[in-house]
Structure formats: C-alpha cells, structure tokens
Amino acid sequence: MAAIETPVAKRLKTIKHVIIVCSGKGGVGKSSVSVQLALSLYASSPIARVGILDVDLTGPSIPRMLGLDGRGVLQSSEGWVPVYADGSETRLGCMSVGFLLKRREDSVVWRGPKKNAMIRQFLSDVRWGELDYLVIDTPPGTSDEHLSLLEHMAPVHSRLSAVIVTTPQAVALMDAMKCLSFTRTVNLPVLGLIENMSGYVCPCCGEVSNVFSTGGGQEMARQEGLTFLGSLPVDTELVTLLDAAEAAMPEQAADEPPRRTERTFRLIDQYQQTSSSKLFKPIVERLINALAGGGVGGDETVQA
C-alpha cells in the first residue's frame, strides 16, 4: 500500500479512521446523523480529534447544522484550513462546499468531472492535521461523488468503513439496499445500519406515531446480515437545534461578540441535552469498539 503515494494518500496519512455515511435515498438524515456522529465522537474523549467532510456538493447542509453558515475557508501554506466548530480548541474541523459560496442561495450546477475535481481537492488540499476520525457525509444516490471518493481514497482503503442510514418506509429501504449493493461492489466494509425517523412522540400527549412506519431497518439488517446499530425517533428538539443554529447567534453576539468559542461549546452542550444524544451514545460506543478492532458485537461486518 505504501508504494502509492498520491497527494490524497499523503494527506490522509494522519487520519486514523474514515467513516463514510451513506444512504441511497435523500432526506433520511445522513447529514444529521453525520453531525451527531461527529459530535458524539468529539465528546467520547477529551482528546479525540474529529473531522467532518461534506461531499454533498449541490446541497451542502453541514455548515448550517453546525452553526457555521457564512464562514469562509482560509488558504495557508500547508493547504486549506478547515473551519473549526469548537473555535480555538480545534478538535472538530469541518469542510464543505458551503463555505466556498459567495451567497448561501448560490447553486452549484456542476457535472461529474467538476465534482470529481472538487472532491479530489477536498481530500488532498485540506489541512486536517492529526485526526482520530474523519466523518464523510455523502449526497443521496450511488454516482459520481461516491465513485470519486472511493477512487481517490483507494490508497487508504484499509481505513475506510461505512454506516448506512435509512428510514423505515419501503421506498427508502429499497434505496438503502442499492447503497448496500454499492458498498459490496466496491468492497467497503459496513459497520452497520441506523434506522432514522423511526416514530414520532407527540409533544402533547406522548403518543408515539410511526410517521414513516417502523422496524423496516432492523428487518433489513437481519436479512442482509448487517449489524443493526439502533433506531432514532424523530426528535423535534434536535431538528430545531440543528436547523436554528443561527438563531442562537444574535443573542450571543449582542452580549459579547468576540467570544465565538463559547457558542460552539453551547452546541455540544445543547446537543447532549437532547434525547437523541442519549440514544446515539451506545451507537457511537459500538462504532468506536468496532473500529478499534473489537467487531461491532454480534454479527461481523459484511464480506465482499
């Protein structure tokens, strides 16, 4: 493996684990799972260093969810500097095409070859530094972005793994199956499956409604011999937190404008108060375990 020293391989040398979050279908919560994964990994240890790379080029959502809307990327002699969500502590870096747009409503209308080039730049030019985990949020489908990612990261293939996100409806499961076929074709080990939007608790009476049906993810994991990592209900608190990340800003800005670092700690504090974070904790523990070589527990990861 060491024989191939592409710029990407060189850059990714200092990254221990790369977790690719994917799902065939759009809007099942890849980005929110990626953010939760990054936040939980960040919180898993006081010295964990985490990166989050958003390769959804035509619909980047990560900046908004981390409350980093409107920030820009700086060029340094060693490459592009990621935007740090935790300010001066620099343990949670983020890179997205959203940071490169002049106005947030600008559309990126690119065909494959340009997307491919951007992904290559993301992988070879971003100065991540030492990272324990790099979480990669992908767009829906199995197309250019996914093929480019895998192609460019081939030299570090042994450190790659994937998490599949789905919602319980049949329509989403069908696309998740396609995603699974993709990971098998490209020989990408799957750490497990997360069922998102599984049930909704009425804030008024506490009744659980299965808005997008339920149990489908678990069933799919069983049939396909995947590890079922857990199911996450619709958490309006989380939706609001990740959606209105900006709303927290003005209040802060009015008090003490220069203290940016304080605010992001708030995001993680606020996150840890949501019910989702409690459900996510065991998922992350299993993932960390699996990555450390202990297996996910129960079934092993998929064979090719």
């Binding site: 009476c205 409604s209 709303a247």
Partner: peptide
C-alpha cells in the same frame, strides 16, 4: 405540521424556524 392520531393536536415535526 402533523396531527396526532390520538389527541388530534397539531405539532410541527420539521419546524419552520425561518
């Protein structure tokens, strides 16, 4: 908006924060 089938109260799952 989502109307709870049990108590018929409408709540916002995906809040229109903006």
């Amino acid at each position: 908006g989502f109307v709870c089938p049990s108590c018929k109260t409408e709540s916002q799952i995906f809040k229109p924060s903006t």
